[in-house]
Design a binder for these strands. Structure first.
Lengths: 161, 161
DNA sequence: ACTAAAATTGAAAACGATTTCCGTTTCTAT
DNA sequence: ATAGAAACGGAAATCGTTTTCAATTTTAGT
């Protein structure tokens, strides 16, 4: 955590207005994200910290604020699920990931390559739209859930893929 | 509106449990969506209906329930914005669209072709993941907003694209 | 170290979109 | 017409997130 903090310290120079420093809260949240696999929500993180640090744990408010700072610094990616839930995961600045999201068990799997970046360019010119970022998430069933629901009640939803 | 209703009436056969019919509320919401360009939220629709139909307008609850039904029937696509806001637009069953979303003025523009469908196949095998649907939205600035903010305060956000 | 100013913290309140509850109204089928 | 089922809608509840604000901690200057 110290390493990450030091590596990205200069990024804080870009910040104006709001929270400006890697504060204690930030460091704790960053550490928590490093020690978590998966893509936890702010509340997940706050709860986990409460469990491990009890009264030393930063409050929910601070967790939210820290995540917001880390996202602004580019070392945390915010993943908004289709139901509006927001989850967070560590990245390197400039990186970003897309995910396979299992609709049954909620597990998220990163897709390594981004297939959109090239597309964004052609869109930019075709639609005169300045593309700055994008969201791509694939929903479905992971192997385990797919196997175990094969002989269950058929899904009557009309898929709007 | 009658036409759409009639065209898709058979779809209602697939429904179980919850709301089962194209009720009055549904028809009114569907009509409202037809008469709206853009991608309104449930509250937008409810408000618009309240303005045009006053005490004949369906309540907010009914608007939500109707949209949920129409989405299940596949004739309404739910678009979840990055901030969690949910918006709705009319489609034909089986269709779906991606969007250019202006972060300044909120305008949404449909992208016609879907570039993901092919990708979904290769992902399916590569990750043993059964892809059922996906979300792709591009964020940035539309032409007007891009032009008008050129000499404004530079954006200090670190873009996490 | 000491102090004053600035920034961070966190509990509680506010918020906003959505869902649930539940009594009332409208359909539908007999 | 009547009974039972479904839909309606206002109010209350929920849930994740943001704001408020007083108290605490940190930072900078001496």
């Amino acid at each position: 955590m110290h390493i990450i903090t030091r590596n990205h310290k200069h990024l804080a120079d870009r910040l104006v207005g709001r929270r400006k420093q890697f504060t204690k809260g930030c460091r704790i949240v960053l550490e928590a994200l490093k020690n978590t696999q998966g893509t936890p929500s702010a509340q997940d993180i706050a709860l986990q910290l409460k469990n491990s640090l009890s009264n030393q744990a930063p409050g929910l408010t601070t967790v939210y604020r820290s995540l917001e700072l880390l996202a602004r610094l580019g070392i945390v990616q915010v993943v908004t699920f289709r139901d509006g839930e927001r989850r967070y995961e560590l990245i390197s600045p400039g990186e970003h990931f897309h995910h396979l999201i299992c609709e049954q068990c909620g597990k998220t799997t990163r897709i390594s390559a981004c297939i959109i970046d090239g597309l964004a360019q052609s869109i930019s010119t075709e639609y005169s739209f300045m593309v700055k970022s994008h969201v791509l998430e694939l929903y479905g069933l992971c192997k385990q859930c797919n196997d175990s629901t094969n002989n269950a009640i058929p899904n009557l939803l009309v898929e709007v893929s």
